[in-house]
Computed example of a mutant assay.
Amino acid sequence: MELDEERAMMITNAVGIAVLELRFLDELVTEYTISEKLEEMRRKETNVIGKEVCRDAAELVRTGRLPVA
C-alpha cells in the first residue's frame, strides 16, 4: 500500500499532537496512551477525513501498520 505524502503528513501530525497533549498533562507516553488519545481525538473530530486520519494513526501506533483499504 502506497501512502501519499499529504496523508502521511496528517497522520504524523495527529501522532505528534497526541504525544504533546499527553506530555502537557504529565501522563505516561506509551503506545497504549497514544492510541487512546488518538481515539479520543477521533471521537471529538467532526470532519470525516480527520476522523479517518486519527483512526489510521491509532492503528499505526497499535500495530505498526496501516489498515488495508
Rank of each mutant, 00 (worst) to 15 (best):
M1Q: 06
M1P: 08
E2A: 11
L3D: 05
E5R: 13
E5S: 14
E5I: 09
E6T: 09
M9A: 15
M10F: 02
I11Y: 03
N13V: 00
A14T: 04
V15K: 10
V15C: 10
G16A: 03
G16R: 10
I17T: 13
I17R: 09
A18C: 13
V19H: 02
L20C: 05
L20I: 04
L20W: 01
L20Q: 10
E21T: 07
E21A: 10
L22A: 07
R23L: 14
R23A: 15
L25V: 00
L25R: 15
L28T: 06
E31G: 15
T33H: 12
I34T: 11
E36D: 13
E36A: 14
L38S: 03
L38P: 07
L38V: 03
E39L: 13
E40S: 12
M41G: 00
R42D: 03
E45M: 07
T46M: 08
T46W: 02
N47Y: 03
N47S: 15
I49V: 11
I49T: 13
K51R: 15
E52T: 05
R55E: 09
R55L: 09
A58H: 05
A58C: 08
V61C: 07
V61D: 09
R62Q: 08
R62F: 03
T63C: 04
R65H: 13
V68S: 01
A69M: 07
